[in-house]
Design a protein around this nucleic acid. Structure first.
Length: 216
DNA sequence: TGAAGGATTTGT
DNA sequence: CAAATCCTTCAC
């Protein structure tokens, strides 16, 4: 079977705008599956990644970092959509979120897994970490795409070196026809809000972990 | 000012 | 299942 990334990669994808992201995160997260996360380094190297797994967090949600109060770390989630919320977890991994919904409503979509169109320069693959698993996990996708705390609060636009693009027409058609299937289930790794089914992933993607595909 | 803990990953 | 590892948050 041909790689999904290469099958759906198109040269004229359109950049996702703030207005499209100014909606509730549980509406946006499933629609981001099949969209593109694009990273461009200062060297000019540009890599598109197919988003295959995402989770929604929002106001009133006990698992949301902004549930208790506004703090320096989570403040970007309270602002307008279209910005990056990046945080460091367990002292060693970064997690990347897309800030969503209207100004004043703290919400975001955590990107949990992507399929890279190719291996970035300087990145080694191995049997343990093969090409199709480089972006398999929220910490791993940040590591391979070099997404760090420097990106948090940055707008997701090409000039920032990190942005989003809509599904290609081929991908959109395959999702609508049912050839590609998106599954909804519960979120991972939480201590609160564990029963809220706000995780979505693309069936049969090698970047979605077996642990992650556990059903409700 | 200090201590507890976390939207993870990896190896035992 | 526990370690790695450090920033954020909250309590004192």
């Amino acid at each position: 079977m041909q790689s999904l990334v290469l099958k759906y990669l198109s040269s004229n994808a359109t950049v996702i705008q703030t207005s499209w992201l100014s909606r509730p995160s549980p509406d946006i997260a499933p629609e981001l599956i099949g969209c593109w996360l694009v990273r461009q380094w200062p060297t000019g190297e540009t890599i598109r990644s197919l988003i295959v797994e995402a989770e929604a967090y929002t106001s009133g949600d006990p698992a949301c970092h902004a549930y208790r109060r506004r703090t320096p770390r989570n403040s970007v989630m309270f602002g307008p959509a279209g910005k990056a919320y990046v945080y460091l977890i367990y002292g060693m991994y970064h997690c990347f979120n897309v800030v969503t919904d209207d100004d004043g409503i703290p919400s975001a979509v955590l990107l949990r897994a992507v399929e890279l169109e190719r291996v970035p320069e300087g990145v080694e693959t191995s049997k343990k970490n093969p090409r199709d698993r480089l972006g398999a996990g929220p910490g791993k996708l940040c590591r391979v795409l070099d997404i760090t705390l420097a990106h948090t609060q940055q707008p997701l636009i090409p000039s920032a070196g990190l942005w989003l693009e809509h599904r290609s027409p081929e991908c959109q058609q395959d999702i609508e026809s049912g050839l590609l299937s998106i599954t909804q289930t519960t979120r991972i790794g939480l201590t609160q809000g564990t029963d809220i089914p706000w995780r979505w992933y693309l069936e049969n993607s090698p970047a979605v972990s077996k642990r992650a595909v556990k059903k409700m």
